[in-house]
């Protein structure tokens, strides 16, 4: 009885218990809440497709193929020598979003152009992948929605789009296998 009275009147011991318990409770609450929030983050099936491997062996020179990456179209074009020449020769002052051809490809693999096929204006998918598609004034890609023209390096040259077609992170696993993402 006497011990209890002592303890009750001693503020430090009482407060220590309350503070400790509250702290432990807060840690528990945070640990319990985190899964409820994290479950909205991309799940394992989505993350599994965050990185894809594209096999380039079947793509002939002058041919374009569309892959799917993170739900978006990826334009991969096996450029001809002429297309590469033309792309390299364009002076930077002529471009709306200046970027050299070298900045948009990987050294040693310049014939491969890998881009996200979404117009940087308002998100339509530009034409130019198929041989009979309109290619626009610069022989690259043309977006029919509002008339953006992209050149043979996927750079915006005419029209309302502000930026060049986005180049995703990618690397070559071999000469014919590229890992995107």
């Amino acid at each position: 009885m006497t011990l209890a009275t002592n303890v009750k009147n001693d503020p430090t011991r009482r407060d220590f218990l309350y503070v400790t318990t509250a702290a432990v409770g807060a840690v528990g609450a945070a640990a319990a809440v985190w899964p409820l929030i994290d479950q909205m983050n991309p799940d394992a099936t989505v993350k599994a497709l965050a990185v894809i491997e594209a096999d380039l062996s079947a793509i002939e020179v002058g041919q374009s193929v569309t892959f799917k990456w993170r739900g978006q179209p990826i334009f991969i074009r096996h450029r001809t020598a002429a297309e590469i020449e033309t792309a390299k020769a364009v002076p930077l002052e002529d471009m709306i979003d200046p970027q050299t051809d070298a900045e948009r490809v990987i050294a040693g693999h310049e014939q491969w152009l890998v881009m996200v096929g979404i117009c940087t204006h308002l998100g339509c998918v530009p034409l130019g992948q198929k041989p009979d598609d309109l290619k626009g004034d610069f022989n690259g890609w043309f977006c029919p929605c509002h008339g953006s023209h992209y050149d043979s390096a996927g750079r915006i040259r005419k029209g309302p789009a502000p930026k060049n077609l986005l180049v995703p992170p990618y690397e070559f696993m071999s000469d014919t296998l590229v890992k995107i993402g």
Partner: peptide, 8 residues
Amino acid sequence: FALLMYLV
């Protein structure tokens, strides 16, 4: 935590 709550 249960032990702490009991003491509280």
